[in-house]
């Protein structure tokens, strides 16, 4: 089986802050990481490879520095890594990004047919969750999104448990297929020493726009139907009363509870309804 994982290097958004003085994003010193959902996608591909045999190919679109994410991914046990890097790709929205990745996947697929494509459910810097489904559509593969468990992989079908609002859905798709994954899917491994040494020496393949049959009007900014027209800080919610509960915790608690009743915040009491949960 040939597993292909789409992986993105992202800034660790939990580290991104706004400079209160200038209202701009402070990006300096923010570490780059493998998008956490993609890490779980990779983990699952490697687990399946270990179970049924085959190989794992990783594809990433990004700046030259994204090479580091690919090397790191190799240390977990992937077999091949391709970095799509070109200034022509810069500024791509999710539609254009899916196009860039799809054409590259098709090229891999021609010489080495892909059975299962994995992507994270979304990237933590964009949170759009659109690139995976976009690739599936362009490849013409069926998709299963928000996978929390791969149950079965045989007879040309993959069966997964999907997370939905109302519960878990067990669904299967005919191969070749694309799966987007949640973090609950698996526990990440630590890189083994031999794999780390292999990865340290490994150089990801570097593909530029001209090495693939791209329609250049679909790339980058020109190929992106959406554009950002404005950014601004999130609307601040004005804080209410701050009550000192250091000296008199009882009194502070009583006061807040009192106010909640006064303002009918606690009005339809859940216990009166028999308790919903």
């Amino acid at each position: 089986m040939h597993f292909l994982v789409c992986l993105k290097q992202v800034p660790d958004t939990s580290e991104v802050r706004i400079d209160p003085a200038t209202n701009t994003l402070m990006r300096e010193g923010v570490p780059s990481i493998i998008n956490p959902y993609d890490a779980h996608a990779l983990e699952e591909a490697i687990r399946l490879k270990e179970k049924v045999g085959g190989k794992v190919t990783i594809i990433s679109m990004g700046p030259p520095q994204a090479k580091e994410a690919l090397k790191k991914a190799m240390s977990f046990g992937a077999d091949r890594a391709i970095l799509l890097s070109d200034r022509a790709f810069a500024g791509s929205d999710s539609l254009a990004t899916a196009y860039v990745l799809t054409v590259a996947i098709q090229k891999v697929h021609e010489s080495d047919p892909v059975d299962l494509v994995f992507t994270g459910k979304e990237a933590i810097d964009g949170d759009t969750a659109q690139t995976g489904p976009g690739i599936a559509q362009r490849l013409g593969f069926p998709q299963l999104t928000y996978a929390i468990k791969v149950r079965d992989l045989n007879d040309g079908w993959v069966t997964v448990e999907r997370k939905t609002e109302a519960g878990r859905e067990v669904a299967k798709a005919m191969l070749p297929a694309l799966i987007t994954v949640e973090k609950e899917l698996n526990e990440l491994r630590y890189a083994s020493l031999p794999n780390m040494m292999k990865a340290a020496k490994y150089e990801p393949e570097y593909w530029e726009a001209k090495s693939l049959p791209y329609d250049t009007t679909q790339l980058g900014l020109k190929g992106s139907p959406t554009s950002v027209v404005r950014i601004f800080p999130p609307p601040a919610r004005s804080g209410g009363d701050k009550i000192d509960g250091m000296k008199d915790p009882q009194g502070a608690a009583a006061m807040v509870v009192e106010k909640m009743f006064q303002q009918n915040i606690i009005m339809t009491h859940p216990l009166a309804k028999g308790g919903k949960h």
Binding site: D125, I231, P234
Partner: peptide, 16 residues
Amino acid sequence: PAFGGNIMATIQCKKR
């Protein structure tokens, strides 16, 4: 929200 909710972004789809 964008960049992990640190900023808000207004987006348009002008031509399609």
